[in-house]
Design a protein around this nucleic acid. Structure first.
Lengths: 225, 225
DNA sequence: TTCATCAAGTCATCGGATGACTTGATGAAT
DNA sequence: ATTCATCAAGTCATCCGATGACTTGATGAA
């Protein structure tokens, strides 16, 4: 059956305001009606209007200035951009992050500085094993190493995304599967660093791909159950 | 001089709550203190708490249920990641999207369905030239083709990300540079489809890389001016 | 054991009140 | 005539209290 739509006044007020803004009723920089007027227009209380406006401010569409008014900051909506990624499956998220790992390793091989190399090697040496300080700590150290590879690419957008995916993947793993993923050994990690150190982008890509293959295979197995 | 920091209670309340959530004080699914208690904890009124909570709900971190309470929905902050990526340069964004193009083409070569192939070929045929209907329309058609390649990878996370980057890049291009980027010709596009049709992942990657190289080079030139 | 009823807890919404801030108008001093 | 301090109106920021709607676990009868 068609599920009953449960909504609340703030959400519909937010939607109405967003529609007006995106629809171009007020141009960028224009001052929109004050809170009392909006409350009248939307037939809700001022508190509800404030909540709706606050949401649109947080999404970059509006801008409030105390004593002056509320102004349109932008008429393009990019707030929902990454929300969809969170709703995708674990395999998809893992593959997307792997795409970053791959290209980051390639770029790192082309651009890394001596300091980058030192840092990667140091983190690799500190990585140790699961036995040292428990599983969580090991995962953190392992992650720190992978992030240092992305950092060596010199690409900040990839670093930001890598953080996002790492958090999303961690959350999804906790929510969906209980099994263990294979953890590539120290040698597989070292191969990546070696390829980068040798300024060999193709070998770096190959090393990361070899690294990822067993994990993805296990992931497929766990998810197909 | 150090600019005076102007803030408001709602923003700091939002920040405090977000920090607690991201810091793991409450796990996913946990019920956080009720509005009155949060008002006490944050030393603000209940109205301010409601505005802060509403913002976090709109960002996917919290979830309110009337009569029951407010719950943690996710501890992954996509809005922060979005802001972070937006603050990076055009080259970084372009490279990150190229990473997706590369891996998506590889996966498409391995997984595409006949329907995927039909769609890619159809969009490629419709792509035409800049002369047909103006620059904006051409960019849209070009983009539709590239997105069909990503779609053929069967990876929804990559599709969402691709949309996100496309929007971010468009925004950044309008804001930063005025020059033209070289547009690879129809043949370069066709080479990608051919490699995918031949189920040849390595050739697909090579085709995309060859495709991207001149654009990146021009980007470097424009940005170094 | 099952299930309707109920009461406590919680968010949703409203209305009013006060404070802080911005901005244009006013008018005196130069 | 110009400059600038002062002021008043308008607006958002914040708080408070009250009522309604909804959820949920406890209660007790069938």
């Amino acid at each position: 059956m068609q599920p009953a739509i449960r909504t609340n006044l703030t959400d519909s007020a937010t939607g109405s305001l967003r529609a007006e803004i995106l629809g171009g009723r007020w141009g960028v920089g224009a001052r929109i009606p004050n809170e009392a007027a909006l409350a009248d227009l939307l037939s809700v209380s001022r508190g509800t209007v404030r909540e709706a406006v606050r949401v649109l401010v947080s999404q970059g569409l509006l801008d409030t200035r105390q004593g002056s008014g509320t102004y349109v900051r932008s008429t393009v909506d990019s707030s929902a951009a990454l929300d969809g990624v969170k709703r995708t499956g674990l395999r998809d998220q893992w593959e997307a992050r792997a795409a970053l790992d791959l290209e980051a390793a390639r770029l790192a091989a082309l651009r890394h500085t001596p300091a980058d190399l030192d840092r990667m090697r140091q983190l690799l040496a500190e990585r140790g094993t699961v036995a040292d300080g428990g599983s969580d700590a090991f995962i953190r150290r392992d992650l720190a190493f992978h992030k240092s590879v992305v950092a060596a690419s010199g690409n900040r957008a990839m670093m930001e995304l890598y953080d996002f995916f790492t958090a999303a993947i961690t959350e999804t793993i906790h929510a969906t599967i209980d099994g263990e993923l294979p953890e590539p050994d120290q040698q597989a990690h070292a191969a990546i660093v070696d390829a980068i150190a040798a300024n060999d982008p193709d070998r770096a890509v190959a090393a990361v791909r070899a690294f990822m293959a067993p994990v993805l295979a296990q992931l497929e197995r766990l998810l197909s159950q």
